[in-house]
Design a protein around this nucleic acid. Structure first.
Lengths: 208, 208
DNA sequence: AATCTACAGTAACATTTATCACATAAGGAA
DNA sequence: TTCCTTATGTGATAAATGTTACTGTAGATT
């Protein structure tokens, strides 16, 4: 195939690519699918080859706090961390743009660490980058106020989708920041007055 | 030695223990020492054999937000994650109870992953448990209010020191929760009224 | 003892965020 | 069109947290 694993994971060795193709199973999921729920047992390591996934931390009261995005070429760190023990997932993963994912049985995860240097490096780098991302999340909620967090949220969304239009309702944004719709509406209005965004129904246009 | 590495890291193989003793250097640091600063380059993987360390995330304004404790038998995940690349530290580590740490050159980290199964498992388990701990931190600041966070803070402190007296000033607690001293004083007073603690100068006694 | 300093208590007020109530508007369905 | 549902705007108010200012007090220092 043209859009092959090798293009999406350029650092993987040729042998590793073959091994993945032999042992993994490529599956498609539509936007909206919950790929993994909090508390579920993890049976596969997940590599994203197409589309986008959002990773959430769920609160007891049903809150869905957005942690970060997963994109093609990346892997779910949680699904790697919960290795042989088949631990429970601490997070919820939702497809936000139709995805193709390579599902790799967990026992391969460990095996390949020893056999494929490029897999080892990928896993370590995945740990590192996800850990850093979570630390950035901590920064945001520990040190910043809601208006700054909202700006960060919008910027990240725009980076992820590669566009300047955010097609989300105020309610959806509020849920992902664990606040209320009114707060988001008001803060967005202030941002519009400052010339940072243009507000339309179900769409926020980023101006700078 | 009696209080040997083998006792502190019971899952390490005998060969691994010898290798660590050959390549690592055991160093002592007094309470109060900053073992690692945000932005510093990491040159060693750190194993704790005695004492206690607190890991903080630093804010731009000088805030010191407490993430978690490190205790004997544990390792600094950040110092493992920043492998060969010798990345900058994203955290600050402060000794809170005189420690002995085994400093292991970063290149060993990678090497041993291939050569020692018990090292590999220790590293993976370190990633997993630290990741989970950070996720719990996110929970706390994303979903809980300051009074609940304070109770959690006190409980964690008491777990870490194995005692029911918290010998910290209100100001120190406030700094680690990134709030102000007055807020902590108020909340502690309310907790005292609810019969949860007894307040003394420089000491908070946990009653339940 | 007199003084100093860090810590703690607390009132008053400001600010931020949450909640409630309701109005209006946009877009789809009938 | 008219009706209906969902999204948004906004005022009023409450609650939580942050800030300022001042008091008292315990313990150390002189």
């Amino acid at each position: 195939m043209q859009n092959s694993l090798k293009n999406i994971f350029p650092n993987f060795s040729t042998e590793l690519i073959s091994t993945i193709e032999e042992n993994g199973s490529l599956q498609d999921f539509e936007a909206g699918t919950i790929l993994m729920r909090t508390g579920q047992y993890i049976k596969n390591t997940v590599l994203i080859t197409k589309g986008k996934i959002k990773i959430y931390r769920e609160g007891e009261d049903g809150g869905e706090f957005l942690m970060y995005y997963l994109q093609p070429g990346q892997a779910c760190a949680i699904s790697m961390i919960c290795t042989a023990k088949s631990e429970k997932s601490q997070i919820m993963a939702k497809v936000v743009e139709d995805v193709s994912v390579m599902m790799i049985p967990l026992q391969m995860m460990d095996k390949w660490m020893m056999e494929h240097r490029s897999w080892y490096e990928f896993v370590i780098e995945t740990y590192r980058s996800r850990f850093e991302e979570v630390l950035e999340v901590v920064d945001n909620i520990a040190f910043r106020s809601m208006d700054e967090r909202l700006e960060f949220y919008l910027k990240r969304h725009s980076d992820a989708c590669g566009c300047t239009e955010v097609k989300l309702s105020h309610q959806e944004i509020a849920t992902e920041l664990n606040t209320s719709r009114e707060v988001i509406s008001r803060l967005l209005k202030k941002m519009e007055q400052r010339g940072l965004v243009k507000l339309n129904r179900n769409q926020i246009e980023l101006l700078r």
